[in-house]
Design a protein around this nucleic acid. Structure first.
Length: 224
DNA sequence: CGTCCAGGTCTAC
DNA sequence: GGTAGACCTGGACGC
């Protein structure tokens, strides 16, 4: 779940030469993924166009209502496993609106669950594949074809898969980058250019840059 | 109590 | 290919 088999040596060589990211080589960059790709896709869908509080509400409702109880924790619904595609496919749009509180995303949940449960799409294949089997372009193409998954969600899901080439550009990372850069606004193209030197790790470098202050050892906006 | 918008996406020009 | 408009929810904010 932490991609410990992923060799970051080459990435650390580049960050070491980047004054803003020298701290990264201490061992940062292990993005947490869920047990299944399906779980990360659904959860990411729950982060789109809403507050984190609503994201929590939706995920909590999915887990407590549709998840299998965890052995030894049958009395704690919050400990339930994340719902399977079959469990989610068994509920209708009304359930996702009224119980999950997902609003317009309800149709995305029913469509996605049906696609995965019916075997129309194999999300787990994306988790097993390497860049050699499936290039990032192909993985991105498949993710963007999913209902409710756009550029932001696709980039986010790819990061959980260890596919670190795409930048997660959203209403939080954009202003955060601008602030660190000492500017009011920064065009996406400008941000892309700044991290282009990282090639297939551009998304990871960007993510670590905007989350620098989550790490004690990292320098703040004013530098070390 | 009305408006705005948050870790966007999709459709229609 | 680039861009207004619509779209659920619920917490924040102004009046």
């Amino acid at each position: 779940m932490l991609h410990l088999d992923h060799d970051l040596a080459a990435f650390y060589e580049r960050t070491a030469a980047d004054p803003d990211l020298t701290w990264v080589a201490r061992g940062a960059g292990r993005m947490l993924r869920s047990p299944t790709v399906f779980e990360d896709v659904v959860k990411t869908l729950c982060t789109t166009n809403c507050t984190w509080a609503l994201t929590s509400t939706m995920v909590r409702a999915l887990v407590t209502n549709l998840g299998e109880p965890a052995v030894g924790h049958e009395d704690d619904p919050l400990a339930n496993a994340f719902p399977t595609p079959a469990a989610m496919a068994a509920r209708d749009e009304r359930f996702y609106r009224e119980i999950v509180r997902s609003g317009y995303r309800a149709t995305c949940f029913t469509k996605l669950a049906a696609m995965v449960d019916g075997g129309e799409v194999d999300l787990e294949e994306l988790g097993r594949s390497s860049r050699h089997d499936l290039p990032d372009e192909e993985v991105e193409r498949r993710l963007l074809a999913l209902p409710g998954i756009g550029p932001y969600a696709s980039a986010h899901i790819m990061m959980t898969l260890g596919r670190n080439s795409r930048l997660i550009l959203d209403s939080w990372t954009r202003p955060t980058y601008a602030k660190l850069a000492g500017r009011a606004r920064v065009a996406d193209s400008t941000i892309e250019r700044r991290f282009r030197r990282y090639g297939s790790d551009a998304g990871l470098a960007f993510w670590l840059f905007v989350t620098s202050d989550w790490v004690d050892e990292a320098p703040g906006p004013e530098g070390p």
